[in-house]
Amino acid sequence: MYFKGVETKFNQPDRNEDAPYVNRHLTVFESQCRPLSKGIPVPLDENTRNKAERFILDNSPETEVYLEEHLTEVQQRDMAANHKLIHKKEFRSWFHKKIYDLHQLGSLEHADELLALASGSNLLAYSYQACIVNGVRFVSYNRDQNRITQNSGVCVAGTEGFNYYGQLEEILEVSFTGSYSVVLFRCKWFNTDPKKKKTITVNNITSINVSGEWYKDELFILASQAKQVFYIDDLVRGRDWKVVQEVNHRQVWDFPDASDMIADVDVVHDTNSLNFVLTVDLGELVVQQSDVPATQVNMAHRPSLVVQEDDGFINDNEDDMANSVEEAEDEDELIVDLSDDNTDDVCPIDVDVISEDSDYST
Results as ranks from 00 to 15, higher is better:
275 N>A: 07
40 I>F: 09
338 L>H: 13
284 E>C: 04
358 S>E: 15
50 N>P: 00
1 M>S: 10
320 D>W: 11
189 W>H: 07
128 Y>W: 06
71 L>Y: 10
133 V>A: 02
173 E>V: 09
150 Q>L: 08
244 V>C: 10
138 F>R: 04
89 K>H: 13
326 E>H: 11
233 D>F: 00
119 S>C: 15
262 I>Y: 01
51 K>Q: 14
301 H>F: 01
325 V>Y: 07
255 F>T: 04
285 L>Q: 09
72 T>C: 08
162 F>T: 03
244 V>D: 14
340 D>F: 10
223 A>L: 03
333 E>S: 14
359 D>E: 13
163 N>E: 08
224 S>A: 06
328 A>F: 01
216 K>Q: 11
282 L>Y: 11
284 E>M: 05
360 Y>F: 14
72 T>V: 02
221 I>S: 12
142 N>I: 04
199 T>D: 00
62 E>S: 15
313 F>L: 15
115 L>M: 10
54 R>W: 01
39 G>Q: 12
212 G>F: 06
136 V>L: 08
289 Q>L: 08
337 D>E: 12
288 Q>W: 02
332 D>P: 09
81 A>L: 12
330 D>A: 09
183 V>D: 07
4 K>E: 13
282 L>V: 09
159 T>F: 05
346 V>D: 10
338 L>G: 13
108 L>V: 03
298 N>Y: 14
75 Q>V: 10
96 H>N: 09
278 L>R: 10
10 F>L: 00
38 K>L: 08
296 Q>F: 02
266 D>T: 15
313 F>C: 13
158 G>A: 10
234 D>K: 12
142 N>F: 14
48 T>W: 01
108 L>H: 03
240 D>V: 05
83 H>E: 00
163 N>F: 15
209 N>V: 05
100 Y>R: 13
158 G>Y: 05
232 I>W: 07
297 V>Q: 09
343 T>F: 07
59 N>W: 03
272 N>P: 04
194 P>H: 04
69 E>L: 13
329 E>W: 02
143 R>Q: 05
290 S>K: 13
283 G>I: 06
131 C>V: 05
34 R>I: 02
128 Y>C: 04
56 I>W: 01
145 Q>C: 10
29 F>W: 01
121 S>Q: 00
131 C>E: 03
231 Y>Q: 00
203 N>M: 01
277 V>E: 12
283 G>Y: 14
30 E>Y: 04
109 E>S: 08
168 L>E: 06
51 K>E: 14
171 I>M: 07
259 S>F: 01
271 T>C: 15
98 K>S: 07
187 C>K: 06
